[in-house]
Design a binder for these strands. Structure first.
Lengths: 233, 233
DNA sequence: ATCATAATATGACAAATGTCATATCACCAA
DNA sequence: TTGGTGATATGACATTTGTCATATTATGAT
């Protein structure tokens, strides 16, 4: 963990994520968490933690965009998923594992809310409804990753690229024009194809006038066609 | 749910799975669960539940082998994972979703231990350590599915087939000779390739004397070579 | 500014994979 | 038994995808 605590941290009672995560908290527990949490700002390119690091915090993303990834013995990265606000950075192993099984680094400047893992465990162990709440929320994140993996697995290269472009449009930015937060190589690492074929497929989509490309800027000109390509290759 | 309750059900205090799942139970809760669980026997080919069915039970596999899968609009199946004893059949959505998002059917005769979902929720809501225990156990199953998906995604066809054969060897049967519980088509549905290429790859592995094939029976003659193919294509 | 490095882009080619056709075999139901 | 259906198997071929080479552009460090 490289960041430094922020000077101004939010009052948890106002936290927009409170309802999502901590609705089942008593005022006592909320105060306890609030006094003992730390908000860390991170910047594009920062590593939040690396595969193999000891797990110290339970953490979730308040803002920004990160990638979760694994690095193989040959040094090649494989991106598990790209996560945004409301997503946990701590996945399900957080209470059972002692060390992280994946790395997280920052794609867009981010603020991470971190709670000491032991304190979190204590609270979860005496507040069953919070524990259930947590299980549901973390389950949703895990299920999203599983579903995404299945969607990617069943598509050919065109479908894969279309699928991830639509994810940026619909899930991440909510608009048809956006700056890609990742390189073509990272897209390749995410969907399991080569960098060259990602570039080639993007070029083809451009030639077919489905998208417009200007460096990192992508505009989805024909979302219907892109959906069709995503669904039928 | 098509099965019929079994005549003889195990006394939960003796359940070999008790330690794994219900270690945090008080005797009271254990008795409660024990009286209210139902064990269902299922047979090869049975459907345990289908995508879209209402979730009625929290359930886990005591014995046997099942496949979890989704069916797309064209009627094509995609296998999420093959699960054995100690695996949950209920994945993480079980407490937050109302309907199943995948189907489960039986590959090898199985016994399912089912607990009414509402009763399970009640107990989890008043027993935080059970709730945590459950989160850890379900998290482990989800993580396994995610990991498996990543391993499959990064391999070419030879690597994929080698990977799944090694899964049968090491994880499922613990022996180098086994009867495949699935068809070539189901392998294809699991690892995202065509049936023909699964058959072809198996034939090639046979010609290279890495495996021996006799119908459904597979013998891994050269596990080291198979590992190499799994890791390096 | 300048250099080095990485990212983007494209072509040519090889290799892998999917599609289609066909054949045999196993198995189940009538 | 017979007939039908699905599973396994293989070849031929087309298409897709990966690999390698090369060029240009962007980016960051000094």
């Amino acid at each position: 963990m490289e960041g430094h605590p922020m000077d101004s941290v939010c009052d948890c009672s106002q936290c927009e994520l409170r309802k999502a995560f901590f609705d089942s908290f008593s005022d006592e527990d909320l105060g306890d968490i609030c006094r003992n949490k730390t908000e860390f700002p991170f910047f594009r390119g920062d590593t939040i933690f690396s595969e193999g690091d000891r797990i110290r915090y339970f953490s979730y993303l308040k803002s920004g965009l990160v990638k979760l990834f694994k690095t193989d013995t040959a040094g090649k990265d494989q991106i598990i998923t790209i996560a945004g606000p409301y997503d946990f950075v701590s996945l399900l192993g957080v209470f059972s594992d002692t060390h992280h099984s994946y790395s997280v680094s920052v794609l867009e400047d981010a603020v991470l809310c971190c709670i000491d893992i032991e304190r979190m465990r204590e609270i979860a162990l005496r507040n069953a409804s919070f524990s259930m709440n947590l299980m549901e929320r973390m389950g949703a994140v895990s299920n999203k990753i599983i579903r995404e993996g299945l969607e990617i697995r069943k598509r050919n290269t065109h479908g894969k690229v279309a699928y991830i472009l639509l994810k940026f449009c619909k899930d991440i930015y909510g608009t048809c024009i956006f700056d890609l937060p990742v390189s073509r190589r990272e897209i390749a690492e995410n969907i399991g194809m080569t960098t060259e074929n990602v570039i080639r497929t993007l070029s083809e989509l451009r030639k077919e006038k489905v998208i417009r490309i200007n460096g990192k800027e992508i505009e989805v000109v024909d979302p219907v066609a892109l959906e069709r390509i995503s669904n039928y290759g």
